[in-house]
Write a protein that binds this DNA or RNA. Structure first.
Length: 229
DNA sequence: CCCCAGGCGTCCA
DNA sequence: TGGACGCATGGG
């Protein structure tokens, strides 16, 4: 549908007008963003904040510190984030890959350009997806928010909201939704950054599985009335 | 008591 | 290739 690009921008403007700049990702450093991206897998963000605070208090917010931390101790620190055994492994898998060739130089926003994250989007995505425990959403979150490179992050909210508004079909998979957004929107990392954050803001507030859409900034958009529930 | 949360890997047809 | 399932805490 050729109206899609215009519609998607109008949806963004409506969300931004309601919520304002979201200033994502909520994290101080590229490493903290990567850690948060792994810990928030199927988990409420408030639980992730507690785990991140524990890691910082224990002096573990560096690649080498996480790399050296014994599994049992790491799991205990991230316990509030849930799935702590599997997430401890995933954190270790991530920092092991970074540590192997780049030591403590993770790279990304504010770095010297020679760190683990500092490579082309395609090469970085391939590298991240090869790590056990890093799937498509986590990889794209790291690329966009930690590395500051152009990729669109699709998540359950993105899928749910676009489906309710008829912009995608139920059978569309992650890559299909990602390609639709990337090909429809202006090629701007700041825009894609805030667009994803706005979708999460809508999802958390108005687009829960059991919520009504009343009051949502997207209330008047196509298919809204027929797609509720 | 229930359902939900910014997924992912494994297993199996 | 796609659906079911395990992983786990904390909040509403």
């Amino acid at each position: 549908m050729t109206r899609t690009p215009k519609l998607l921008m109008e949806m963004y403007q409506a969300m931004h007008a309601r919520f304002g700049d979201q200033h994502w990702w909520p994290g101080d450093t590229p490493l903290e963003i990567c850690v948060g991206a792994i810990l928030t897998q199927n988990t409420n963000w408030t639980n992730v904040e507690k785990a991140v605070a524990n890691l910082k208090a224990a002096g573990c917010m560096s690649v080498s510190a996480l790399y050296a931390k014994p599994h049992a101790e790491l799991a205990e620190l991230i316990r509030p984030a849930g799935y702590y055994n599997i997430k401890a492994k995933r954190l270790k898998n991530f920092v092991a890959a970074a540590h192997r060739d780049h030591g403590d130089n993770l790279g990304g926003t504010g770095g010297d350009g020679h760190g683990f994250l500092d490579r082309s989007v395609s090469a970085l995505r391939e590298e991240l997806l090869s790590i056990n425990g890093i799937g498509r959403e986590t990889a794209d979150s790291i690329i966009l928010y930690a590395a500051g490179k152009l990729t669109f992050v699709v998540d359950a909210y993105t899928y749910r909201i676009l489906l309710r508004h008829g912009s995608i079909a139920p059978e569309d998979d992650y890559e299909a939704v990602k390609e639709l957004l990337e090909s429809s929107l202006p090629q701007s990392a700041p825009l894609w950054n805030d667009y994803h954050a706005q979708l999460v803001a809508v999802g958390k507030t108005y687009c829960r599985p059991t919520a009504q859409c009343a009051g949502c900034p997207l209330e008047g958009f196509p298919h809204d009335a027929s797609a509720g529930r």
